[in-house]
Amino acid sequence: MLEIRNIYKTFNPGTVNEKRALDGLSLTLEDGDFVTVIGGNGAGKSTLLNAIAGTWMVDAGQIIIDGIDVTRLPEFKRAQYLGRVFQDPMTGTAATMGIEENLALAKRRGRRRTLRPGIRKSERDEYKELLKTLGLGLEERLTSKVGLLSGGQRQALTLLMATLKKPKLLLLDEHTAALDPKTAAKVLETTEMIVNKNHLTTLMITHNMRDAIAHGNRLIMLMEGNIILDIRGEEKKKLTVEDLLHKFEEASGGDVLDDKAILG
């Protein structure tokens, strides 16, 4: 479903702030894979997701989504294949627009926007049903401005928007990091529900090792812009936090002072 071949990205090349964020990274995802991504700060986790999403162009390498080479496609064109949820709850929704308007925008992802109505009456019932599955009571507030919602509500809504038109790949960039633990757990639960229901290929960054182990069928760890650990199948099921820390130490040469501090 996703094939990343040897991608490179350097920020601020030729300056003192030069930073090689992706260093020849390759990754292949099978259809239906749910991959959790962990790694310390600056390991390249978000950079990887942004590279796939097309926030900027990679310096070298190739990105192929379901057989389509998207390496040179601008962000808004790639969006037709991707569902995205961001770390900041403010990023994924339009605050000054209503809940139903946000959903209607998402419904039209990948379609040319014309002079057809921005939202049809028939869509409202569909949105109501979908919002009910979140269990947040949002189905009663279709016309409320999204700016009035809490962070957790906004992330749940963004998840719905990201998957309203079934994406080939769902990108979750630490989408629970800005939420309180209880809300984070609820949003993760919703994530799991939506991913399973739609059988979505998913790439989820998390700071939380427990979450990374508990969710998905595969786990990768990044360091210095490359994958240093790739655990899947049975091995992933039996994985514990201690194992992971141990493996991290091994893979990184054991020169990390406090893995817990870096990996949370």
């Binding site: 808004f76 969006a79 994924g92 000054t96 627009m97 992802r109 990948g110 379609r111 926007r113 990201a162």
Partner: peptide, 11 residues
Amino acid sequence: CNENMARAQGI
């Protein structure tokens, strides 16, 4: 309102 959101929705 939100450019990032707009682009993520293919706008």
